[in-house]
């Protein structure tokens, strides 16, 4: 069970003067149950990449295998793929359209031609997963707070019962509280439901905290693919790509430069605190 990309290439405006590589020979394999962080600055190809993973965009060349099957093979069930690989776009609340929360979440399962009972039980389960109880079911999605709307939209994708959940900057525009709630819920989905998560984010601090593995994109190419710890070691290269490492990485690097023997791969506040306290024997 995996997603495997082989020499995935996507060219916009092929054959015109504006020809541009959005993806260039990208290779990777994502295993079941991983929590992947996908980073890259605006225009690095990460949005193009995630739209390939559920077949919304088709590669110009290269192959994409889902559970060992080539999704570009003739007669491949694209609709089936889209229900297994759920994609939550940036500002997903902009896709809400039904008069009440419950009907909106039912939209996905309804498109899968399931029985009414199954549709409703899936919608209930999905809303439960994002922490919205029955009091929300009959409310208009447009009267909820920003964070709640976004949870409804995520539930709309979860109701398809995907095995893989891709989220494009799910915390954009939210305040710290809304951000922590959403990320906490994603973490829980990963832990409790065993979903494979692919999270696109600009926040290196969040990546350091949640992701098992980071894929770094730059100008359509995959630059790094490793644990956050190992990727943030390359903070100078990240900066050259218009990215950065968490603030803690910089502090740790500066301490080491002064000859203070702290470990190089500390990436969270807690780790740095403990390392410094250990050093002075506290």
């Amino acid at each position: 069970m995996s997603i495997r990309a082989v020499n995935l290439t996507h060219i916009y405006g092929q054959g015109t003067a504006f020809e541009q590589y959005a993806l260039k020979n990208v290779n990777f394999e994502i295993q079941d149950g991983e929590f992947i962080g996908l980073i890259g600055h605006t225009g690095s190809g990460k949005s193009t990449l995630i739209q390939h993973l559920n077949g919304l965009l088709k590669a110009t060349s290269g192959e994409l295998y889902y559970n060992g099957e080539n999704i570009y093979a003739h007669g491949y069930d694209m609709k089936g793929l889209r229900s297994k690989v759920g994609l939550v776009f940036q500002y997903p609340e902009h896709q809400l359209f039904e008069a009440d929360v419950f009907s909106d979440v039912c939209f996905g399962p309804k498109n899968l031609n399931l029985s009414q009972g199954e549709i409703e039980s899936r919608a209930k389960e999905a809303l439960n997963l994002v922490g919205l109880d029955e009091s929300f079911y009959k409310q208009s999605p447009f009267e909820l707070s920003g964070g709640q709307k976004r949870r409804v939209a995520i539930a709309g994708v979860l109701a398809m019962k995907p095995d893989v959940l891709i989220l494009d900057e799910p915390t954009a525009g939210l305040d710290p509280k809304g951000r922590d709630e959403i990320l906490g819920q994603i973490e829980k989905l990963h832990r409790e439901q065993g979903l494979t998560i692919i999270l696109v984010s600009h926040s290196m601090e969040d990546m350091a905290r949640y992701a098992d593995r980071l894929i770094v994109m730059n100008k359509g190419e995959k630059m790094f693919d490793d644990t956050p710890r190992n990727v943030f070691r390359h903070y100078k290269e990240l900066e050259a790509m218009g990215l950065a490492a968490p603030q803690i990485t910089y502090i740790v690097q500066a301490l080491r430069k002064e000859g203070i023997p702290v470990e190089e791969d500390l990436i969270t506040v807690e780790e740095a605190r403990d390392a410094i306290l250990r050093l002075i024997g506290k």
Binding site: D175, P176, K177, E205, P246, Q247, I248, I251, V269, E270, A272, R273, I276, L277, I280, K282
Partner: peptide, 20 residues
């Protein structure tokens, strides 16, 4: 008040709490 502090401030705060 459900606000964050920058990591630098947080680390300094944590170390201060630990007696530095």
């Amino acid at each position: 008040y459900r606000l964050d502090v920058p990591q630098v401030t947080e680390l300094a705060f944590e170390l201060r709490q630990a007696g530095l």
